[in-house]
């Protein structure tokens, strides 16, 4: 921290000069105060009102929250988020770690391979959704192709099957982000103290033991970051569902983000929509606030 402001001058010009940094910062502070925190308060308020197509400012207590958990689509969305979130985080972490360890073995063309693993991260979820939507479509995609190869009985209809459709969201989402998780773990691997590894190696430890006992425990910070980033992305997932399945078949792939949008803007149940958004915010805050807290405090 560096305090550079000079002795407070008596003349107005000096005072202006001293205040200049704060003046420069103030538009951003005002914007965030209104458009982030003000809006959060507004939406929280709406979640306690009987707002339908337009905001209504009369309070109705916890009614929207009570009703929310009686709506079948919302419960589906919550269960789906649990399934999707857990699988998405677990698979991305396993695959990311696996690929990072493989890429850390003095691979020729490492940079090239890394570029290929990571490029999906530059794409829009809508593009990813379109590509996987038609690739998983039984009529023209994978199933049709494999049948064309002579396996007449091959069947892959997850995307049109209400019970399995949520897993197609996992497939596409993992494809998009696992390369990024790989990059995070690779950066972590490169930061590990080599002396300790060499010592253990001289003691005759096998590669497997080295990784399990020494390398992976040291990747804790990378795991933490990956978890926070992935959990936060899972809760916010919206575009991918819209492009891949549109929430269907039926409500089979509904997530909280798609539920909020459809209840607020197409079903005109703004109070219910606001309540679902508040629950999303609480879930994310429970993950992000402790993380930001520790990150910012450590720096001092």
């Amino acid at each position: 921290m560096s305090q550079l402001a000079g002795a407070s001058g008596a003349r107005p010009m000096d005072r202006l000069r001293d205040a200049l940094p704060r003046i420069v910062l103030s538009p951003s502070v005002a914007i965030v105060a209104v458009f982030v925190y003000g809006f959060i308060l507004f939406t929280i308020y709406l979640s306690f009102t009987n707002s339908r197509i337009l905001p209504d400012y009369e309070l109705v207590g916890w009614r929207n929250y009570h009703n929310l958990f009686r709506i079948r689509a919302w419960n589906t969305a919550v269960v789906n988020l649990a399934i999707f979130g857990l699988l998405y985080i677990a698979i991305c972490c396993c695959l990311g770690l696996f690929l990072a360890i493989l890429l850390d073995q003095r691979i020729r063309a490492e940079g090239f391979i890394r570029t290929i693993y990571l490029y999906p991260m530059a794409l829009s979820f809508i593009v990813t959704g379109v590509a996987w939507k038609w690739f998983l479509n039984p009529g023209i995609g994978l199933q049709a192709v494999v049948r064309g190869w002579g396996f007449e009985n091959f069947s892959f209809t997850w995307i049109t099957d209400g019970k399995m459709a949520i897993y197609t969201i996992v497939i596409a989402a993992v494809w998009q982000t696992s390369g990024f998780v790989m990059a995070m773990f690779l950066a972590g691997l490169r930061g590990i103290d080599n002396e300790m590894l060499k010592a253990a190696q001289i003691d005759g430890a096998s590669s497997f033991v080295l990784y399990r006992r020494i390398v992976i425990p040291q990747l804790r910070p990378a795991f933490m970051s990956a978890f926070v980033v992935l959990a936060h992305m899972a809760i916010k997932s919206y575009d991918l569902v819209i492009a891949l399945t549109g929430g269907g078949p039926g409500t089979a792939t509904e997530l909280p983000a798609t539920f909020m949008y459809s209840y607020t803007f197409t079903r005109n149940q703004m109070g219910i929509g606001a309540a679902s958004a508040v629950i999303m915010l609480m879930t994310i805050a429970a993950i992000i606030v402790p993380y930001l807290w520790s990150e910012l405090r450590e720096k001092k």
Binding site: F39, Y261, A277, I284, L292
Partner: peptide, 14 residues
């Protein structure tokens, strides 16, 4: 910084 991480569903209506 926290403003980056909020679910934007929270700000859509206002």
């Amino acid at each position: 910084l926290f403003g980056c991480f909020i679910p934007f569903q929270m700000v859509l209506i206002p």
